[in-house]
Amino acid sequence: MWLLGRRLRFPAQPPCSPGELRLSVLGSRQNNFFTSGGVELFDLAAQGRIDAFFLGGGQIDGQANINLVGTGNYPRTSVRWPGSFGSAYLYFLVPRVILFREEHTRRVFVPRVDFISAPGVSAPEVHRPGGPRALVTSRALFSFDAQAAGFTLQSVHPGHSAAEVRENTGFAYREALPTVVTPPPDRFALALLRGPVREELSEVYPRFAAVLAAEELTAEPGPP
């Protein structure tokens, strides 16, 4: 699941006000308003109508380069992933790209990706209104600073530690001190995630949604 969702803002609306947030899951038919074919998503991004985009990576390095192609020497990669999809375009044009990867290990977060599907930062002569802003994993949340070309650990999730994050991350990053624990979602957010969000997700990712539903049954009760 490389491309999870995107948020659209129409020019007449103020940016980022919660009531007007529009989230779309790529591949959905029910929520698909496109009438110009697959190119419309990319044209929307070029027109500045997409505020944020979630993007995964098979490998991600400390400069936020992402690899969706495979490990080993290209083209005969020993492990081959599907391919770069729209990353080499959207990563440049969407203002807030949020990287996500559930597996937080040294085989994912590497010193240098084996193949750059899309670079984290660009030279000054390259048109780049967008790029990475954050990285979310199963253990922690990082922010990304394009000027410094590096990540900063912002918080660790409940039950995890900064030392554990260090141990499982293959690239260098800064740490915001003291270590902060990621606040859990409030009841409203949790209900949203487990209700409408999971429901919408199940259209495109039925198996993933089923796994989430099963996990929820065994999860601890949510916050009051």
Partner: peptide, 18 residues
């Protein structure tokens, strides 16, 4: 890919559309 039996021209979606 592993066997090297196909020639790869990896692209990105908007490049193919364009």
């Amino acid at each position: 890919v592993r066997a090297g039996t196909i020639r790869l021209l990896d692209a990105t979606c908007p490049a193919l559309y364009a």
